[in-house]
Amino acid sequence: MKWTRTVGVYLVLGLGASFTLAPFLLSILTAFKTREQFAGQSVLAWPDPFTVENIVRVLTGPAEFGRAVLVTLLAAVLILIGQLVCSILAAYAFARVDFPGRQVLFWVYLSTLMIPPVVLIIPLYLMMTQAGLRNSFWSLVLPFAFASPYAVFLLREYFRGIPQELIDAARLDGANTLDVLVEIVVPLSKPIIATLTLITIVSHWNSFMWPLVVTTGPQWRVVTVATASLQSQFNGNWTLVMAATTLALVPLLALFLVFQRQFVRSITISGFK
């Protein structure tokens, strides 16, 4: 009975993995096909002949996809830096610094997670317009470059798990609050910081609605908007659209390969806690 249960579990997991990976496989296979192959063969047929024409056309064509990748990458990196710095400072204050109203302020701040992001689009748009930043690079960065409630919550819970004895020992050696944070807390929190790095980069790399609303034209177009524009610009040429989708996946896959150990470790540590 035990082996049948094990086989059943792996079959279910394999089926779920197949449904999850199928769209990515379809995207990659289509990206390296010609239009004739895509129209005349099964969507899961192997490219024959194998061609990189779609990749070249996407990167060098009028859609300026290469520029969109650079704009998205720079915006995501700046948002990541701002969110990590602000979230670490706020989370440490909520976790280890005693001040009046700490718990109330934390839960009020955390309650903003209940607000749907789409509700904030119009107020943010008006703010960017009145500040003269609409259709600029900073309109992509500034609304998200500060602490996020989710990051603060995750870091706070992790910081609370760090032994107080380590912090007390550092204070006995003359370390101030900033020294404790930089020299003790942050090095011990690398797994959770790596996890937040992945989550932040992926969420803002895939952001679509806000960049679509706040920017116009190709100058500050991001990857998601550039990919969507290809569908209308080339009359539904799916080989080009899938080539753009495949290119957009490459940085995320590389990021995951770099941080996979820390990501898995953070899940393991959270499970033990």
Rank of each mutant, 00 (worst) to 15 (best):
Y125N: 06
W107H: 11
S189W: 04
R265G: 04
D168S: 13
L84H: 02
A243Q: 02
N54H: 05
I269W: 03
M114H: 05
L133M: 14
G101W: 00
T216Q: 15
S139P: 01
T246M: 14
E36G: 13
S136N: 09
V182D: 08
V119M: 13
L247I: 06
M1K: 13
F153E: 00
A248F: 06
W210F: 02
G161Y: 13
L13H: 12
S148N: 08
P163T: 04
A170Q: 02
V85A: 10
L73N: 01
A76H: 02
P211F: 06
Q233M: 15
P23S: 01
I184W: 06
V56K: 15
W220A: 08
T30G: 07
S42T: 06
T177M: 10
M242R: 12
S232C: 07
I121W: 00
L84V: 03
L252P: 00
V258S: 05
V58R: 11
Q219I: 10
L70F: 09
A63M: 14
I193Y: 04
S27T: 15
N237Q: 14
I121Q: 01
T34I: 03
V180T: 10
Q262H: 14
L255Y: 00
L252W: 00
L249K: 04
Y10H: 14
V118R: 03
V118W: 06
M114W: 03
V202R: 01
E157G: 15
P49W: 00
P143H: 07
F146P: 09
A17E: 10
L44T: 03
I199P: 00
M242D: 07
W210Y: 03
M1Q: 13
L133T: 05
T6R: 14
V182H: 11
S203H: 09
F106H: 07
A91Q: 04
S207A: 15
N176Y: 07
I199Y: 12
V12G: 14
A90P: 02
L178N: 01
V182C: 12
A151H: 09
A68G: 01
P218K: 12
A254F: 08
E36M: 13
V12D: 13
T197N: 00
